[in-house]
Amino acid sequence: MGELQRTVLYDLHKEYGAKMVPFAGWDMPVQFASGVMKEHLHTRAEAGLFDVSHMAQVILRGDDAARALEALVPVDVIGLKPGRQRYAMFTTPEGGLLDDLMIANKGDHLFLVLNAARRDVDLAHLHANLSGLEVEEITGRALVALQGPKAEAVLAALNPAVRDMRFMDVADLELAGATCWVSRSGYTGEDGFEISVPNTMAPRLARALLDDPRVQPIGLGARDSLRLEAGLCLYGSDIDETTTPAEADLGWAIQKVRRPGGAREGGFPGADRILAELTDGTERRRVGLAPDGRAPMRAGTQLFADEDGAEPIGSITSGAFGPSIERPMSMGYVPAGMAKPGTRLFGDVRGKRLPVSVAELPFHPHTYKR
């Protein structure tokens, strides 16, 4: 492992008692002094501030950039209106998921946010396939997320215009003296905002937010349990190049115009398989899983149809204890015929077959401002 990169908020994290861990090549806070459980619950009740500056920020410029990008993703980019953002996926020729990402239409350019662990893969993919466009990685800006039911009130104290934004809106706003690129989105299932801010102004903005008593700093530990309660995928765990959009239950992200019979059907890597699975179904599906008892079933746990089954029928990809729901929760892949909520399965935990039930996702309801 090479030397870990540090975000511009590293010193602030240490000041607030962060425990730092390596993550995707970065030295990141996994938790702060209050601990993962309290951070999680505080975000659900008030507002949490997350440093997500490790993620890649990319601008695409050029003639017909939206149409060019549609050749790499199965979503409607051409129809994405200025001031709006959309969840998307890079797909492989085999129909797998190269990465998931966010795409925003900023009017004269597209703005992409990519996963940190896939930064190099994604940038190479963009450069190789969008030779007619300018692909610019933004390196002089931090990225923070303010999440929770009090997020709007907190941010509106810095700029009241945020009150007019709805889920997946994007806007350029002045916050604490900095020109920020703001989206009303996040990775917790809560209402909130993701804010791209110049590095030179990021500590000032973070302190302005943390000075509000409703805001606490939140680490990667609570970020993971929050997104799992919300039923959101983590790339490299729940989705990867071996999973397709339909298998991952991400078909909702593919708009009608790109589906079979749509005006711009297909035209992206793996379209034949992906469109066929949207129509005909898949052999396996990502599902929620609720273990009996209080002990979580974690990633890698093999699933069986009964206590004595010799061959696993699936496996768990994410698992943790859900502080908001006060019980363990998992996600994983099972045969499509066993994906109905309530189906009883068994997970192999240290050689013991323990019962687990297929559950509805999300475990905790989303509270986005529609």
Score class of each variant (00 low, 15 high):
Ala104Thr: 11
Arg298Phe: 05
Arg223Tyr: 14
Leu155Cys: 09
Lys106Gln: 09
Ile313Asp: 07
Gly261Leu: 04
Thr139Trp: 09
Val30Asp: 14
Ala290Ile: 00
Gln57Asn: 12
Arg184Gln: 14
Leu133Ser: 13
Asp11Gly: 06
Gly342Asn: 09
Pro217Thr: 05
Met331Ser: 15
Met1Lys: 12
Gly219Thr: 07
Glu94Lys: 14
Leu110Thr: 08
Val75Leu: 04
Gly140Tyr: 14
Leu173Gly: 08
Arg86Asp: 06
Lys81Gly: 01
Pro328Arg: 04
Asp249Tyr: 04
Gly261Glu: 08
Val154Gly: 04
Pro149Ile: 00
Ala104Met: 07
Met89Ser: 08
Pro323Glu: 00
Gly35Leu: 11
Glu136Leu: 08
Pro203Trp: 02
Phe23Ile: 09
Arg227Glu: 05
Lys14Asn: 10
Arg44Met: 10
Ala305Pro: 10
Lys14Trp: 06
His42Gln: 15
Thr7Met: 08
Ser357Thr: 12
Glu307Ala: 15
Pro82Ser: 01
Arg370Asp: 07
Ala142Asp: 00
Ala230Met: 11
Leu133His: 12
Arg273His: 01
Ile78Cys: 07
Ala305Lys: 12
Asp108Val: 11
Leu228Phe: 01
Ala320Pro: 06
Ala230Ser: 03
Tyr187Phe: 13
Pro365Trp: 09
His13Asn: 04
His109Gly: 05
Ala202Lys: 06
Leu41Thr: 13
Ile274Lys: 01
Pro93Thr: 07
Val52Gly: 05
Thr244Glu: 09
Phe90Arg: 06
Gly262Ile: 11
Ile78Gln: 13
